[in-house]
Simulated scan of single mutants.
Amino acid sequence: MIQFEKVSYQLREPIITARGKISTRVGYFIRIRDHDNSGEGEILPLPGWSSVPYQDLEKELENISRGINFVPSDEVRSGINMANWNLKALQIGAPLWSVLGGASNSIKVNGLIGGIAVKEFPESLERLQRDGYSVIKVKLGFSDDFEKIKLLSEVLSSSQKVRLDPNGMWSLGEASERLEYATKTLGERLEYVEDPVSTLDELFHLRKMVSVPIAADDLIRKKGALEYGLQNKLMDYVVVKPSLIGGIDDTLKIAKETQSNGIQVVISSTYDGPVGLRTWCHLAAYVSPDLAHGLGTAVFIDDKGMGPLVPTDGKISLT
């Protein structure tokens, strides 16, 4: 039996990306019941990234509850899959990370700096350092990219890593120029750049121009894109947002395929609510227990359910 209800979460402050501003998260909380147990799921489409608008979700969920045969969106599949896995963990009586096959009850996460103004950048960077993050992700794709990279080079210690993310907004020429500068100023502190350009063809050419480790996210979500990327050795990491691709089962398939090719897997949030974020943290503990994941987003959501998911010294403990 499936139940669903609308939910809305307000961000404590907007996240600015090269694609726009994220200030609220709206969608559905779902529950799948089986006798005495109830598995929770969550569906929160992210405008600009999701394939389905929030307005279409209710019809899909009603079709599922009525047993109507149709092909649901990836976001709805993810929420249903999430609830089923959480139900399974309750039935077994073990934490989800253990049910999946993991051995660690905690994960590392990266700190995040959105597309803020340069004048605010040093304070945000120093705050994340004080909070104990050893890996920091920075949203780029703006006119002040060079200034921010310079500030990073001046503030980061030799033991800290940075991930640059322009959300595919750089042209091939801009990517080459900025990454050459980043390599020169940051050196080994630059862990990777995520989606530096907007197409796989551009990435193919960029790969020959710079030696920076590449992480692919949106670039590999279209059909056949992951296979093309693997065949041409276009990336060193893949960043997976489970909520956008169908959930845990689809993520496990991608992880198996990429890790068998020597590619590392980072699990990332879409500024999820407490149910979704908790589930993805358990999944990350199994998929890549030694990597920092993009799941330190509880601090951005104004909801008391986020309390246990707020990182301490760059880590989240799971129960």
Rank of each mutant, 00 (worst) to 15 (best):
M1R: 13
I2P: 00
E5C: 11
V7M: 12
S8L: 14
R12H: 06
I16H: 00
T17C: 02
A18G: 14
I22N: 01
I22F: 03
S23G: 08
T24P: 00
V26A: 08
I30H: 08
D34G: 07
D36W: 10
N37D: 12
S38K: 12
S38T: 13
G39D: 04
G39Q: 06
G41V: 07
L46H: 02
W49L: 14
S50L: 09
S50K: 04
Y54N: 11
Q55L: 10
D56W: 07
K59H: 09
N63W: 01
I68W: 04
N81F: 04
A83D: 05
A83G: 08
L90R: 15
Q91F: 03
I92E: 15
I92K: 15
L96Q: 09
L96M: 11
I107K: 02
G111A: 06
I113Y: 04
G114T: 09
E126M: 12
L128E: 04
I136G: 07
G141E: 00
F142K: 05
S143W: 00
S159I: 13
M169R: 08
S171Y: 06
E174D: 13
A175Y: 00
S176G: 01
E180R: 14
T183P: 00
Y192L: 07
E194W: 03
E194Q: 09
E202A: 14
E202D: 15
V212I: 15
I214K: 02
A215P: 00
D218C: 05
L219W: 05
L219T: 02
I220W: 03
K222N: 13
K223C: 02
E227Y: 09
G229I: 05
Q231A: 15
M235Q: 10
P242V: 12
G246M: 11
G247I: 07
T251E: 03
L252G: 07
I254P: 01
E257R: 14
S260L: 12
N261A: 15
Q264G: 01
T270N: 13
T270M: 15
G276M: 06
H282A: 08
L283G: 08
P289M: 11
D290N: 14
D290I: 11
L291N: 03
A298Q: 01
G305F: 06
M306D: 04
L309R: 09
G314E: 04
K315Y: 06
K315W: 01
